[in-house]
Nucleic acid binder design. Structure first.
Lengths: 163, 163
DNA sequence: AGAAAAGTGATAACGATTCTCATTATATGA
DNA sequence: TCATATAATGAGAATCGTTATCACTTTTCT
């Protein structure tokens, strides 16, 4: 799923923002429920994440958003948005954390990781298959009295381009 | 699978090591094939990883191995062993990388990640359950003509201690 | 408006990991 | 075996992503 959130409203310090996508409105009310302010800086971060075709690192976001969102504010926004459940961290090599919009925004999906070219592709599956995944997860967690909250099924292999 | 590799041989700088488990001998020949030396420091790192019930971070390994393996050597050993395919990195929050023995040594398993305390626990499942996982993986990969090589099912939630 | 609470931005501090370099151990071949 | 080349080691400095600090600004509440 590719989501683009565009801000038509006036710029930072020039007035209130006008959310144009229903998604942005969803995020707005989601944050309001948690009494977390949806400030201009946070909107810019969400917008940059929504534009991207995959998880983005703080450095990538900073180069996109520079100089409107300084690095320290960017990190703070990422923390706030993560705590509020709007974005989800994805940890990778070299201690780099990449973020993407939470699954309630983008939809639940899994990942195909190509061992050849390193590309990570989202894969959506049918509700039936997803139910089978969830059953397995619940059974596995039950074996050791672990309370599952979410799961990640990643398939490593060779993508169609690298075959 | 729990593996314990014990070194009966004399200590560091006191003579050659005597591998006592067939697993250690497997690793030895695996490294020999790649002309990577299986030095005493590297043996200690492998031994510490073999004892643990899940992926261990460099800091954890260091506190186990201190002062026999200094931090800089520990990191170097981890890099060498990873490049040689003996251990596998697992990236998690706060830029921490945890390592575990590769699946050709430990056998295939999945992970339970506690969202509260960050602990990662290995979970072995029955062949029947694993077959169900593999079926799902094959079906999912088939949807987009991806050739699966391996898969990782990670369950995030709350462990029994943090409940 | 005025006070309190939250957010911001520049910069310092922090911590995990990597690099440097002098020293030591191992392997190869005369 | 000895000589010598090659690789590994250990201590500490350097690096880099991320967090904390603090003075200042903005927003919210009364």
């Amino acid at each position: 799923m590719r989501i683009v959130i565009t801000f038509l409203g006036p710029r930072y310090r020039e007035g209130p923002f006008v959310p144009i996508s229903s998604l942005d409105r969803d995020i707005e009310s989601h944050l309001a429920d948690k009494s977390v302010r949806y400030t201009s800086g946070r909107r810019l971060v969400v917008g940059a994440l929504a534009k991207g075709g995959g998880p983005r690192s703080a450095a990538e976001l900073h180069s996109d958003l520079h100089p409107r969102v300084p690095l320290s504010s960017l990190y703070r926004s990422l923390t706030v948005l993560q705590d509020a459940g709007v974005i989800v961290p994805h940890f990778s090599a070299h201690g780099i954390t990449r973020y993407e919009l939470a699954e309630w925004i983008t939809g639940h999906h899994h990942h195909l990781v190509c061992l050849e070219c390193g590309a990570v592709e989202d894969i959506d599956i049918s509700p039936g298959m997803e139910a089978r995944v969830r059953n397995l997860v619940d059974e596995m967690a039950g074996l050791v009295s672990f309370t599952p909250v979410s799961h990640t099924l990643e398939i490593e292999g060779r993508c169609s381009r690298c075959k």
